[in-house]
Design a binder for these strands. Sequence first.
RNA 1: GUGAGUGUAGCUCAACUGGCAGAGCACCGGACUGUGGCUCCGGGGGUUGAGGGUUCGAGCCCCUUCACUCACCCCA
Length: 434
Amino acid sequence: MKIASVKGFHDILPGETARWAWVEQRAREVFARYHFREVRIPILERTELFTRSIGDTTDIVEKEMYTFVDRDGTSLTLRPEGTAGVVRAYVEHALAQQEPVSKLFYFGPMFRRERPQKGRLRQFHQIGVEVLGRDDPAIDAEVLMLLHDLLVELGLRSFTIELNSLGDERCRPAFREAIRAFGEAHRGHLCENCQRRLERNPMRLLDCKVASCTALMATAPTMESFWCQPCREHLAAVRHMLDHASVPYKVAPRIVRGLDYYVRTAFEVKAEGLGAQNAVGGGGRYDGLVKSLGGPDVPGIGFALGLERVLLVLGAAVDEQLEPPLEAFVAPLDAEAELQTLAVARRWRREGLKIELGSASRSLKSQMRQADKSGAPFVFIVGEAELEAGAATVRDMLRKRDYRCAVSFRWTVPEVRAYLRSLGESAEEAPRHE
RNA sequence: GUGAGUGUAGCUCAACUGGCAGAGCACCGGACUGUGGCUCCGGGGGUUGAGGGUUCGAGCCCCUUCACUCACCCCA
């Protein structure tokens, strides 16, 4: 019986890893421009970190966590999201004492034990950012700008940033109660799920997709009418700043978010092509979280992007962005040629040339096939004649032309590259062979 | 956790009312000397997801089980 990977845990094979690396690289560049710095934190945390931050009644904590008891009896959990761990590290190392504002990003696997489907895995990857230490609207706007720039940089064509305010501890409880009362009054018209939500998490009634509920909730009290003055002004300021900087977004009074710690600013990124899922990312403000985890009363805001979903949306479009993996392929024809090319190739590789080496144990025909598949634009063929001349014959794969004993084994990589470039230029002027 | 669908070669899929398990792609090799893609020829590769049952005979019918996929819930 073969051993297969765990359900919902996928291998990412060489055919795909270049895409992942490209996305990560793009993201790093954007983060650098906004002066965010990377943190790398553990995948395993004490269970209470998540129960206390995410919220006892959320789906994540109630039914989706990978939790087990360690040998010494402590309960540990594979992180289902990134913010809790970042905040834990922030508190544990007293970063607030060292700098007034921390702008952080991370990249890594998250774990939720849900039933897998398109765009949803049990181990999935997120790229996320957190800003600790600022609660003014300008930082919210800046984070949303970063999010927008990142999505554009990654090549997402059609996406929407949906923005809302969830209110804060002053105004949200009243709204929550109003929704509960409203739902209670119309209990008979709610779908089964919403009837359950009524007790557990009434705010969720707002984003139910069942048509009858949507219709009913359209007549429900709105968050907007409950916002306290500071919340109202905060959102207005964020919007004003985004508008002024021409950052596109859509106001979405119904978005609610699945984690308890969010206050005020909350947002999601919606895109097409994800099956039943349509969110590639989401985030929001979490002003009370640091304090509730034993730290100073420091505000925070952040977001996370699901990498699998980003890659799903991008599809094959990413491939055109990838660098060609090889500059040349070297084909030795016999044992002596192999001995020489091994040494020469090694020297060139140390100088940065990306080359693949064939094997003299295979025929030239076979090596050419291999070279063709590798995508190398040139093949350096080395047989008896080339050894005598101390230079490789170059096969230009695109233009189907040979240059006998043209590339000296003694050349440096810049010389090799200059020569290969010159072939392209001269061939444009010269009449094409078939 | 609930529902539906699908399991045959590495991948995508055929195989009539039960009758010798196949194709395309991919991989490897060849088509006179040291040259790729196109074409042609050849080759390797299978416990038909697993276990049991019915039958002279099961990929196909029955039971059990496992896995995967999609959807619900919810989210990245």
